[in-house]
């Protein structure tokens, strides 16, 4: 149990540090993955809504502290996203990889729509920009993140057969 907690803590800490300090290293054509959201996705799929909501809130809050944006917008986005992903966790339903990818795409949409909506409402910006935001920012980011999640599941499938039971 403690090992599990430490392992997940290390995963979140690493993804948080990489996302905050080194994310441009992973950028391809200006598009970079959201490592914290990927970690949250993996966590929520494993543990469900309640832990995912709390963890999402704190990771989002951490991101808010190191971003020059509104305090709380990422906390809101990540906690809602954590709750959303947790609804489809492995304890509730057995999901195949394709379905997991669909959830991942939806989770990124939920996160970005929530964060963007906060910004748009707070700054009184037209809702039209939300569409372009999703089309040009969220989709490439989601595709990149999907590749990473797919690699994680491939690694789990081929090298950790016991963990998918």
């Amino acid at each position: 149990m403690i090992t599990d907690i430490l392992r997940w803590f290390a995963l979140f800490a690493a993804s948080f540090v990489l996302q905050t300090a080194f994310i441009q290293t992973f950028a391809i054509g200006g598009v970079h993955p959201d490592l914290v959201l990927i970690a949250l996705f993996l966590f929520a799929m494993r543990f469900g809504c309640l832990p995912a909501t709390i963890v999402g809130f704190f990771t989002g809050l951490g991101q808010d502290l190191y971003a020059t944006q509104l305090l709380g917008q990422n906390a809101l986005g990540a906690s809602v996203t954590g709750f959303f992903i947790g609804l489809f966790n492995v304890r509730v339903m057995r999901t195949d990889p394709v379905f997991k990818m669909v959830i991942l795409v939806l989770a990124f949409m939920v996160h970005d729509i929530t964060v963007s909506e906060v910004v748009l409402i707070k700054n009184h910006i037209s809702q039209v920009t939300l569409f372009s935001e999703i089309l040009f920012k969220t989709l490439p980011l989601t595709l990149y993140s999907m590749v990473i999640v797919a690699l994680v599941y491939i690694w789990e499938y081929f090298f950790k057969p016991s963990s998918i039971q």
């Binding site: 809504c49 309640l50 909501t53 509104l70 305090l71 709380g72 917008q73 906390a75 809101l76 906690s79």
Partner: peptide
């Protein structure tokens, strides 16, 4: 508790956003 946690986190976030 799940919904309550979500509600608390959402309210905290909104409070921080509007502060």
């Amino acid at each position: 508790r799940t919904i309550t946690t979500l509600a608390i986190t959402v309210m905290l976030s909104l409070w921080m956003i509007n502060a």
